[in-house]
Every structure is written in C-alpha cells, then in structure tokens.
Simulated assay, not measured.
Amino acid sequence: MGSSLEFLKGKKVVIVGGSSGIGLAVAAASLSYGATVVIASSSEEKVNSAVKQLGGGDGNLVSGFTVDAGDELKLFAFFDKVGVFDHLVWTATDKSAVGYPDIDLSEHRNVFDNTFWGPAAAGKYIHEKKLMASGGSITTTTGTVWQRPRKGWSIGGAAGAARVTLAKGMAIDLSPIR
C-alpha cells in the first residue's frame, strides 16, 4: 500500500454541495491528491464559478452539474451521467428554516429534502445501480448545531441529527461501501 497521499490518485470523487464552503475545499484537496472531481450544486452560476476556480478545462479533471439534490429523479439522472465513481461527499444542506418558532412550518418542510432524504436516496440508488467502485465511501457533513443548538435553529439542528444517524445506519446497510 502506498502513502496516504496516494489514496485518491486516479479515483473519481463526487461532491454534492461542491460549489462552495467545505464542499469546494474537499474538491480542491481531492484534485491536489490526483483525483478526478465532479461537483454538483443547485446553482448553475456557483457550479460554473467553482469549476473555473478549480481549473476546469484542464483535461477532464473537474466537471460540474446543476442538480436539485432534494429531487430524487433529478438526483438519479445526475448519478447516471456521472457513472461509476469511487467516493461521494455530501455537504449539501438547506439552511432556510432558521428563525424557529417564528417561521411558517409549512414553508420549511423541504429542509429535510436535501439534508436527509437526498443522501438517503443517493446511497440507495448508488447501491442498487452498483455505481460505487469497490472500496468506495460515502461521507456526509453537518455542522455542530445538532449537538449544540443555537437560537432559531431547532429545525436545522434536527435535520443535522437525522443526517448523522443516517450516516451511521448507511455504513451498516450499504456495506462494503464505507
């Protein structure tokens, strides 16, 4: 086995939520370690900007797609375009429900769509379609608000906690995917 610096060499890393923040940093780090990167985000403008920032056009090392991560059919179509890959990193989330209890809950029920249901659907689809290469992994991220709630973040914190529990269960249910 080579050094840990070579673990991503020649691997394809897909990052949902990869156009900004932690997702963009993961994309840049993955590229620096020799991976091919596919980023996805709900904003076409942010995807185009991130691909350019990451050196898009340099061969096929980085590509980007616009996708609504909370819409299963669009998400599945995205994975079909990507094809077989090695690692999925899910940083996409929905922060729109800040301000609880002074929000209209009916307008924020979608918070769980890409925070929880998106990665749940992605893992199931990847497993069923055998889109993850042997030795692959799914990594999800969440902030600390599920552990240490801040004022107004009750809904977002609950969605984060659900994602943490989902990731633990997926590790068991989708084995040998890590």
Rank of each mutant, 00 (worst) to 15 (best):
G2P: 13
S3Y: 10
S4I: 07
S4H: 14
E6S: 13
F7C: 02
K9T: 05
K9M: 00
G10P: 05
G10S: 09
K11Y: 10
V14S: 03
V14E: 01
V14H: 01
V16H: 00
S19R: 06
S20R: 14
S20N: 11
G21D: 06
I22N: 05
L24V: 00
L24I: 00
A25R: 09
V26W: 01
V26A: 15
A27N: 07
A27E: 06
A28S: 14
A28H: 06
A29S: 12
L31N: 08
S32N: 15
Y33E: 13
Y33A: 10
G34I: 11
V37Y: 07
S41L: 01
S42A: 06
S42C: 08
S43T: 08
V47S: 07
S49A: 13
S49V: 00
S49D: 10
A50F: 12
A50W: 12
V51L: 07
K52T: 14
Q53Y: 13
Q53C: 06
G56L: 09
G56M: 10
G57K: 01
D58E: 15
G59L: 13
G59P: 14
N60D: 13
L61M: 09
V62H: 11
F65V: 05
T66G: 04
T66F: 01
V67C: 15
V67G: 07
A69I: 08
A69Y: 09
E72N: 11
L73G: 11
L73A: 13
L75Y: 10
A77D: 12
F79L: 10
F79W: 05
F79Q: 04
D80H: 12
V82L: 08
V82Q: 05
V84T: 15
D86F: 05
D86E: 03
W90N: 06
W90Y: 14
T91P: 01
T91S: 14
A92N: 04
D94V: 04
S96N: 13
A97L: 05
G99W: 04
P101N: 10
D102F: 12
S106Y: 08
E107G: 01
H108L: 09
N110W: 05
N110E: 08
V111P: 02
D113N: 07
T115D: 15
F116S: 11
G118E: 06
A120C: 07
A121R: 11
A122L: 06
I126K: 04
K129P: 00
L131T: 05
A133W: 03
S137V: 00
I138W: 11
T139G: 00
T141P: 02
T142A: 15
G143C: 06
T144A: 12
T144C: 03
T144W: 08
R148K: 15
K151V: 14
K151D: 14
W153H: 11
G156W: 02
G156T: 07
G157Q: 08
A158T: 15
G160T: 03
R163L: 15
V164I: 13
I172H: 06
I172T: 04
D173E: 15
L174K: 02
R178A: 13
